[in-house]
Amino acid sequence: MDVLSDVVAVTRTGRPRSAQVRWHAPWGQEFAPVPGSAGFQMILQGSCWLLSPDAEPVRLDAGDVVFLPHGSGHTLADSPETLVTAPACGPDDPQLHDAYASDDVDRSGDGGPVTVVLCGAYQLAPSRAHPLLLTLPDLIHLPARPDRHPELRSAVALLAAELENPRLGTDAVVPALLDTLLLYILRIWFKEQLVREDTTGWAAALNDPPVAAALRAIHRDPAAPWTVAKLAAEAGLSRAPFARRFAMLTGQPPLGYLTWWRMTTAARLLRTSDAPLRSIATRVGYTSEFAFANAFKRSHGTPPGAYRRND
């Protein structure tokens, strides 16, 4: 099982949103903070500046991708000196909320140079937020380079084409492309961290052969009767060195992560399926429905039945 794909599948919820927006200079647009979401900006044409309250302005050119994994507030503008008077753009903005079957949005200024941006957001489930995502920086900037990230550029082009010219099947294609974009962005960022000598945490864990082997085993079969010794065998290490290495890179001991992943998987199954509690308990490694219910309540603060009803 691919750990990164698993993480995205469990954490993301609802339908992602996107729109292609065309601005004419001078222009400025504030994007309000949206807790429980992750946003992106992709420059398709022209250039602009990304302005954040606690950081230096960042120039963005055509082909640049910006990912904000924690829904941080920010502003896009044609110049750092432009006075931003546009209303804050949040999750309820109708022009960004559901653009699947509409033409791209045109926000005119005074007829100056045009900047076209593909923007959108993913809704995340806070109760299922994976530590891998929690450790990401507030801003990930992937500058455009002709010889890098061809898959990401292709996915952006496909998404832009669907939004600009909706056709039969667009409602199905757009969410799939948005999920693809999210995975490409994360894949690229984690890969680029490997060239850093001080890389630690989940970027290192996913690319450390012993720890990655143990993570794949847990994700492949969370119901298995795993012990530290069995996971160490998957990793090809003895018990104590494996436990230290796993905890150092992931921030959790092996069995602590196993329990967390089981409960996170159970929460997703409770919200997305009608499977009986006994079946869910079995799928996450509990032979007793009573033991599963107790473990779930300790993890989520509510019994599994109540958690499902409160969806």
Rank of each mutant, 00 (worst) to 15 (best):
R298L: 12
T227L: 02
A19P: 04
S154Y: 01
K191Y: 14
A176T: 09
E162H: 05
L178M: 07
L183P: 08
D198Q: 13
V195H: 10
S47A: 11
T199K: 09
T282W: 08
E289W: 06
A240L: 07
A247D: 07
A101P: 00
S127K: 08
S37W: 13
T11H: 14
L249A: 10
K191S: 15
L249P: 11
L132I: 01
H70P: 08
L76V: 11
A224D: 02
S108F: 12
R309L: 14
F40V: 08
T115I: 06
D171P: 00
L270W: 06
A38V: 04
L60Y: 05
F67Y: 12
P53G: 04
R196T: 03
P26S: 05
V117L: 11
A204Q: 14
Y122F: 12
Q252M: 11
A295Q: 09
V3S: 08
E151W: 03
C119P: 06
L178I: 00
N207R: 07
D103Q: 10
V65R: 13
D138L: 03
I280N: 01
Y257S: 10
S18W: 06
L124K: 02
W226R: 03
A161G: 01
R148V: 12
L258G: 02
R145L: 07
T227A: 03
K230L: 10
N207C: 04
L177R: 00
L134Q: 15
R167Y: 01
A157Y: 01
L51G: 02
A266C: 05
A9L: 15
Q41N: 15
S47E: 11
P143T: 12
D221T: 09
S273N: 04
L158S: 10
T265E: 07
F242D: 07
G251M: 06
A224Y: 06
D208G: 06
